Computed example of a mutant assay.
Amino acid sequence: MAQEIFPGRYTAATDEDITVFLIGMRANRWWKLGPVLRVASAMPRMLEHLERDPDAGMLAWHQWLGRTTLLVSYWKSPEHLQRFAADRDAPHLEPWRDFMRTVAGTGDIGVWHETYQVPASGIEVVYNGMPAFGLARATRHVPVTAGLNTARQRLRAQGAG
């Protein structure tokens, strides 16, 4: 499905703190296709589950694929993220346990994640000629207007002084 492109400059606006979660995997031994595909196939089920359940707290996501994959997701809070990770009824625990039993420690596949808690006052973004993307997709996608032209102005508007 084609995404609408917004000509001109846009930014994101939010009054809430955001949790940014980066996660990915690296096919260290890419020729071992079976384990690589098994591990990689777990993520689409998780994303479908999260998109069907807005109360889970994931606001938006973007993914890039390659030997090292990267998924950037935006969450309402770290508690929402942790609750999903530990939820026995969500499609995360079983694939994680399977990975730990069968792949972890072999060196075939690496997995990683990073979590950042970002205060609303510390957010500054700009998009030019892009679809609603990143933080603007997760929060409010707004045009850059007078007073929001520079990074300093956008930070000030978010309350960073």
Rank of each mutant, 00 (worst) to 15 (best):
L33K: 14
H49Q: 04
R26K: 14
H80L: 03
G107T: 08
K32P: 01
V103G: 07
W31H: 07
L37T: 10
W64Q: 11
L50I: 04
A42G: 14
V103T: 15
T145I: 10
R154V: 07
T150W: 05
T69F: 03
M43A: 05
R152W: 07
L47E: 00
E79F: 00
A27N: 14
E124G: 12
R88F: 00
V103K: 13
H141C: 12
H92I: 00
L135T: 11
R26V: 12
D108Q: 14
I109G: 01
R156E: 15
A56Q: 00
L22A: 12
G147K: 09
G134A: 09
L71E: 09
A40K: 10
L50R: 03
A138F: 07
E94H: 02
R26N: 10
D89V: 02
D108M: 15
L70H: 14
G105W: 01
D98G: 02
V20A: 14
L70D: 11
V118A: 11
M25L: 14
A151E: 07
G159R: 09
R38F: 07
V142A: 08
F84R: 01
S121A: 15
W64I: 08
L135P: 05
I18D: 04
A132P: 05
L93D: 04
I123L: 15
V142N: 10
T14Y: 06
G159D: 05
G147I: 10
W75F: 08
T106L: 04
R156K: 14
L93K: 06
P95E: 00
A40M: 10
A120W: 02
A104Y: 05
A90M: 02
G134P: 03
W96G: 00
A157Q: 08
M100G: 05
G66D: 02
A160T: 05
E16D: 13
A151C: 04
A138R: 05
T69V: 02
R52V: 00
L70R: 14
L70E: 09
L135M: 15
E51V: 15
R101W: 09
P7K: 13
M1L: 13
H62M: 13
P91V: 07
Y74H: 08
